[in-house]
């Protein structure tokens, strides 16, 4: 059941996006998300949607898998659509009902926001689909390395992220095991009021905490044994090198951004 969750949701394939430098991917995802909010009308938004669709096609990630990433935000999508339709006023009134009115502006807003959120989710999940957690954290470490100058230990943060990612499946497994063990002793986790059920979780969380600390302790030993002394003097097996591919991606994204700005100027804003 819970172990079905694949964390980091990496989708193994050998596409252009998979091979691209994680630093570039991180930067571009960030840039694209910013420009998603720069869009002021449907024309500029169309550019972003086009880029996203293109990226999806070239990512080698099946459409079904991408759709799965939208599911968690479905509630938010429905909620914002309703709010936008009924509470934004302006333009032609199509429909009126008691205090609510459906207007042109409302519908425009609703459609715009929905497209924007979906694009946002697809873009960011494309990043996690095409980049392994390790690459992602190393990429982040490299990108943030200038922060070392102001004495922020970027390596330590990246190491913590890697370890957290590494131990999520292990801890999920452990939780399942403890739950089963407590159930075998007659613990009732499914019935009763909310408070009763919350209380029933205590005998699961206490052993989980204790064992996590023990794990942490052992892990620290194991890391010391493998001569880990922090970020200093460390090398990396996988070197990151920018290739022509990365520059092409960068150029394409910059062209898209320029397009967004131009279209913003030439057409009326709708939002």
């Amino acid at each position: 059941m819970i172990s079905d969750i694949t964390f980091g949701q990496y989708y193994p394939a050998k596409s252009v996006l998979h091979k691209a430098d994680p630093r570039i991917k991180l930067l571009l995802t960030f840039l694209m998300i910013v420009f998603l909010f720069v869009c002021k009308n449907f024309f500029s938004l169309a550019v972003m949607v086009f880029v996203t669709v293109l990226a999806t096609v070239f990512s080698g990630v099946p459409f079904k898998v991408i759709l799965k990433s939208i599911r968690p935000v479905l509630v938010i999508l429905i909620f914002t659509t309703f709010l936008n339709i009924f509470y934004t006023k302006g333009g032609t009134v199509y429909f009126e009902f008691w205090k609510f009115s459906v207007t042109e502006k409302g519908i425009n807003n609703a459609v715009f926001t929905v497209i924007r959120i979906i694009t946002l989710v697809v873009l960011s999940s494309l990043l996690t689909y095409t980049t392994t957690p390790t690459d992602l954290t190393t990429g982040l470490e490299r990108l943030l390395s200038p922060l070392n100058l102001i004495h922020i230990k970027v390596h330590t943060l990246a190491m913590m992220m890697t370890l957290a990612l590494r131990f999520i499946p292990t801890l999920i497994e452990e939780t399942e095991r403890i739950m089963n063990a407590q159930k075998a002793r007659g613990a009732d986790l499914e019935t009763g009021s909310l408070i009763q059920r919350a209380k029933a979780l205590i005998p699961i969380f206490v052993p989980l905490m204790v064992s996590s600390f023990r794990r942490a302790y052992e892990l620290a030993f194991a890391m010391t044994c493998r001569c880990y002394t922090g970020g200093e003097g460390r090398t990396r097996m996988k070197q990151m090198k920018l290739s022509a591919r990365d520059f092409v991606l960068l150029a394409l994204c910059l062209i898209a951004c320029a397009g967004v700005i131009v279209l913003n100027i030439f057409f009326e804003p709708v939002i």
């Binding site: 980091g8 392994t132 390790t134 890697t162 590494r166 794990r215 052992e218 892990l219 194991a222 493998r226």
Partner: peptide, 9 residues
């Protein structure tokens, strides 16, 4: 073995 493996790959 679980407590001495550091990386995700």
């Amino acid at each position: 073995p679980d407590n001495q493996i550091v990386a995700t790959i």
